[in-house]
Design a protein around this nucleic acid. Sequence first.
DNA 1: CCATAAGTACGACCGTCGTCAAACTTTGAT
DNA 2: ATCAAAGTTTGACGACGGTCGTACTTATGG
Lengths: 91, 91
Amino acid sequence: MQQVLEALVDPVRRSIVTQLSAADSDVACGAFAIAVSKSTATHHFKVLREAGLIRQYYVGTARMNALRRADMDEAFPGLLDALTTPQARQR
Amino acid sequence: MQQVLEALVDPVRRSIVTQLSAADSDVACGAFAIAVSKSTATHHFKVLREAGLIRQYYVGTARMNALRRADMDEAFPGLLDALTTPQARQR
DNA sequence: CCATAAGTACGACCGTCGTCAAACTTTGAT
DNA sequence: ATCAAAGTTTGACGACGGTCGTACTTATGG
């Protein structure tokens, strides 16, 4: 839980989770709308992965990211819902 | 939202919120089970207050703390519920 | 009036975190 | 074989946040 919150408190990482939640399929690392360098992006994906929020797999040179929503909903019911709500994203 | 998450990511502050949520009435600053000095405690209460999570008022020399659950539930539905759930506290 | 209790305010210290650039790896295409 | 695309790794830097001690304020009780 502590680890999950530490992952979600960063705006960039929360944006990644939000974009993943809104997408209808998995997303490559380079396809996110985040304004940081590649190395910083790699760092953020690592934090999200180690917190159990995403799963990653390769497709050619692209590393795909999948939101582990079911696992999260089981471990922390309501948390991702509370964060990906449209009004939550706005405020 | 960002401010609320930054307030809730600290274990001491989340413990304060949890204890407030479990209590059936408001709690004085000195009555919490937190292992930090007085000045550090004051700092944490200030962060919680500025994030809108608690309200404070004096009763003699004691400063009472009230959880603003209704305001939070309106602004960020499900967030406090997700964090104060017994299984959330455990994990 | 004085002492004690309950917090607050102010600096200071230190660790952690987000950030980047540069060098490297691996895969796929020409 | 070469080259480009996509990430990773490493190291460094700077800022912010949690912590504490000390000094200060305010209120209650004897």
